[in-house]
Nucleic acid binder design. Structure first.
Lengths: 206, 206
DNA sequence: AAAATATTTAATCAAATGATTAAAATGTTT
DNA sequence: AAACATTTTAATCATTTGATTAAATATTTT
């Protein structure tokens, strides 16, 4: 008889259910019973495997934070790629990920509000963006009069914001903009090419 | 003896407390007891005046939605102002409001996820953006070869996103960007002038 | 001032919720 | 298969939480 591994495990069934429930409702509105039911397991097993709702949540949150922030850090700090290419890669990766997980940003951002202390360590674990290769490259361009001078935070806010914001506000955009889900996804795919051009205009002023 | 009016009223004390508590924690994480304590009143008074937590929440949410979306609709549909001026006005109004109420967007957006049905009527009450004066003016520019052609949703997403997103993600930006609260506010004020220029570049391709 | 009405309080309810326990079932090792 | 360990279940706890009630207090009306 085959040994249970991977997704057959009770533990993994709980994780999958927890991802779904926490992601869609947030910590406070999620009930351990919701997760147990979604996983098709007895409620007590949740505590048996994960001790508490909070511990389970922390695991899921850490996973998601890595997923949300981790993917781009190596791009940001790669010495070999130009700043223009970095922007293309970051935007592409964000939008591709978000099409697959559209409710990730609201989840992360709203939990970040509710438990800021929980994220400080994790966020601070990453190298500060202010001394990343990306910023170094940008400041070099400014020095050489190739780029418009602005605080690098504007750059990050714009790159991430233009990529992420439409997903955060998707229901509104669809509602007031007369856009179907399918059209929405097409528009998001379009943005993969448009955003780098827009950012280029901002940086190079042309 | 002076009659109680305005902010002296128990009802208004509860409203003020509810705004604060709901805004900072969201519906699910807010306890009616938190609100009562914050207001300095007996818990039963909350139900005496507002019947239920949900009814109180609906009032606060409606208030905030109007505050968040209502302010710009008359600008968007004003025939007399140019599209460039509209953009300046919208960005200025958003950022000014958000500096005063920085946690409004996360609140609205995360509750929008949790109770989408509650917003549909309110949002649909507004005229669709797709047949606003703003869009009409933009399409006219495109027709006259003055503006780059794109789906108007990109325009809205960009204007609102560039204005709002930094506030939604402020803790992250401050954390990873080495920016103090004071610097953050200065940068946001800067954006009032920068965003309209960036949007102009996108529209006019220069 | 007395009566009527409105507001406030303390106590309590019922349901929901996170967690635990003891026993049963299942799986593994010897 | 017996002994041991792991996993699962049903029942139950203890708190928390939204809400209600009846009595007390304050305010307004007559």
């Amino acid at each position: 008889m085959a040994k249970k591994t991977g997704k057959d495990t009770t533990e993994e069934k709980i994780m999958i259910a927890a991802r779904k429930v926490f992601l869609s409702k947030g910590y406070a509105a999620s009930r351990t019973r919701d997760i147990a039911e979604e996983a098709g397991i007895n409620l007590a097993l949740l505590n048996y495997y994960f001790k508490s709702k909070e511990k389970l949540f922390d695991i899921i949150m850490l996973e998601n934070l890595k997923h949300y922030a981790g993917g781009i850090m190596h791009v940001v700090n790669d010495e070999a790629t130009t700043i223009d290419r970095k922007i293309e890669l970051i935007v592409d990766q964000y939008i591709t990920n978000l099409i697959a997980m559209p409710d990730l940003p609201i989840f992360v951002l709203s939990e970040l509000r509710n438990h800021p202390q929980k994220f400080i360590k994790i966020v601070q674990g990453d190298k500060k963006l202010s001394d990343s290769v990306f910023v170094k490259q940008y400041l070099q361009l400014v020095k050489n009069k190739k780029a418009v001078k602005m605080h690098p935070m504007h750059l990050f806010a714009n790159i991430i914001g233009l990529s992420v914001f439409p997903f955060v506000t998707a229901p509104v955009l669809k509602g007031i903009g007369n856009v179907t889900q399918e059209q929405f996804l097409d528009l998001m795919a379009e943005r993969k090419k448009m955003i780098p051009k827009w950012i280029s205009m901002m940086i190079y002023n042309k």
